[in-house]
Design a protein around this nucleic acid. Structure first.
Length: 430
RNA sequence: GCCCAGAUAGUGUAGUGGCCUAUCAUGUCGGCCUGUCACGCCGACGACUCGGAUUCGAAUUCCGAUCUGGGCGCCA
């Protein structure tokens, strides 16, 4: 019976392991074979004169990264990693690996991200890479738990749509029989429709597609969005939900992923403290214009340099609130007493934006007015506007970039590190 | 969309016109080696992205193509 490598202790009498040949060190009369599975590494020690001759022969035939099965006695051994080693009774090559390897799994020689992504299955054999995806798994698990516990309904909406929901962003056109269709850039419209459907609290974890030709370490053309929409609340309410969720995710990762965190070599893993500051846009602009060379004025979008300057000043996760209505989408609810600003927010990590959301406009006529104000034709929004005519409750929501959350949480240098098979400007394979 | 940079063995690199039959590491193959843990030692193998130009001579300069990385804008 095969056992996971990390379950073998110095007290284990005997074991069968199946895993990948991580390294082979042949000293002549004595050989060491390191076997790795997803739980850890164990050393197989082969004193060639004391084991069956066919075992010594098999050892010579093993190439690195082959899948091998070893059964044998476990011996406590201070000199071996993990304080134990395996003395083989039998070794079998289950699947021989070809040589040379396209990249060095043992990480003696680094590989560039591009090489790694071309050979992602090999790259992901490296503990520091698989650790990222174990943590990503915990992030999504914690997210689903959080929403389930808080009475949210998970929805799955179509990624094939007839038109843009928000405008602005470029869409990927696809052939849909005799019609033109697109890959969806956001579940925004569907979430809002479910408010009209009376679901009250919904969330979706799903892909979003954006055909923008950006080329940065924080953009993807296919990303995973954690999206919520909640009725009978406002932006303040969903901001609190967002802060609670993010802290909950960090706590869950902290509690359940200590091995993965250690594999990543993180010195510290800090759960963000309660009470993310709510920084009004106008104050954010003041900080940015004081710290940045370039001219930054009220009404400008917050660019990369400004974002960095403000993040430095804040030094923790924070919200930017009370944005000018002019630079937010038509569906962001303007303040009743000051329609020049709106109930929209961004949630920021000092490094980058993680989420944006708002209380939405739920009044049909106001929405038409807002669409027209943006220079868009309300007639093109029939499909979107229809639910607003038949009893749309007040509601608010946000979208949170799952990859960015993981990237900032783990201090990864590039958002592509947090995606198994990233899609960017140049990459469609594998 | 705009801008910048880069492309050398399987991998990661050195190399600013002749000293390049191209450096180093890792790897692979062969040999030696009984406590390695980046094992060590000896030997071998393996590369200048493509096309054009300049030049007596190009990995190196220039032009074009292809591929790649990054910055900006916009965004999650």
């Amino acid at each position: 019976m095969r056992v996971p490598i990390n379950t073998i202790t110095p007290d284990t009498p005997s074991a069968e392991v199946i895993g990948w040949a991580h390294e082979i060190r042949d000293l002549g009369g004595l050989a060491f074979l390191l076997i790795r599975d997803r739980t850890g590494i164990i050393q197989v020690t082969v004193p060639k004169k004391k084991v069956a001759p066919e075992i010594a022969e098999t050892i010579r035939a093993i190439s690195r990264e082959s899948v091998v099965r070893v059964t044998g006695m476990v011996k406590p051994e201070g000199k071996a990693p993990g304080g134990r080693e395996l003395i083989p009774d039998a070794i079998e090559i289950v699947s021989l690996s070809a040589t040379p390897l396209p990249l060095d799994v043992a990480e003696k020689v680094p590989a560039e991200l591009d090489t790694r992504l071309d050979n992602r299955f090999l790259d992901a054999r490296r503990p520091r890479v698989s650790a990222i995806f174990k943590i990503r798994n915990a992030v999504q698990h914690a997210t689903r738990n959080f929403f389930f516990d808080n009475g949210f309904i998970e929805i799955n909406t179509s990624k094939i749509v007839a038109a843009a929901t928000e405008g602005g962003t470029e869409l990927f056109p696809i052939a849909y029989f005799e019609k033109e269709a697109f890959l969806n850039q956001s579940p925004q419209l569907y979430k809002q429709m479910m408010m009209a459907a009376g679901f009250e609290k919904v969330y979706e974890i799903g892909p979003i597609f954006r055909a923008e030709e950006h080329n940065t370490t924080k953009h993807l053309n296919e990303a995973t969005s954690i999206d919520i929409e909640v009725s009978f609340t406002d932006h303040i309410g969903v901001m609190q939900t967002l802060e609670d969720l993010v802290r909950d995710i960090y706590q869950f990762v902290d509690k359940t992923c200590s091995d993965a965190i250690a594999d990543l070599g993180l010195d510290s893993f800090a759960v963000p403290e309660k009470g993310f500051p709510r920084l009004p846009y106008s104050e954010a602009i003041e900080i940015a214009s004081a710290k940045c060379e370039e001219d930054i004025a009220y009404g400008d979008d917050i660019g990369t340099a400004a974002e960095r300057a403000i993040g430095e000043e804040m030094g923790r996760m924070y919200f930017i609130v009370d944005w000018p209505s002019s630079i937010r989408p038509y569906y962001a609810m303007p303040y009743e007493n000051d329609p020049e600003i709106c109930k929209a927010f961004d949630m920021m990590h000092p490094r980058m934006e993680l989420s944006s959301g708002a209380q939405r406009v739920h009044q049909h006529d106001l929405l038409v007015e807002q669409i027209a104000k943006k220079g868009l034709n309300p007639e093109n929004f029939e499909f979107y506007l229809n639910p607003f005519r038949f009893g749309m409750p007040p509601h608010a929501g946000w979208g949170l970039g799952a990859e960015r959350l993981v990237t900032t949480m783990l201090g990864l240098p590039n958002v592509r590190e947090a995606v198994l098979f990233p899609r960017d400007r140049h990459r469609v394979v594998p």
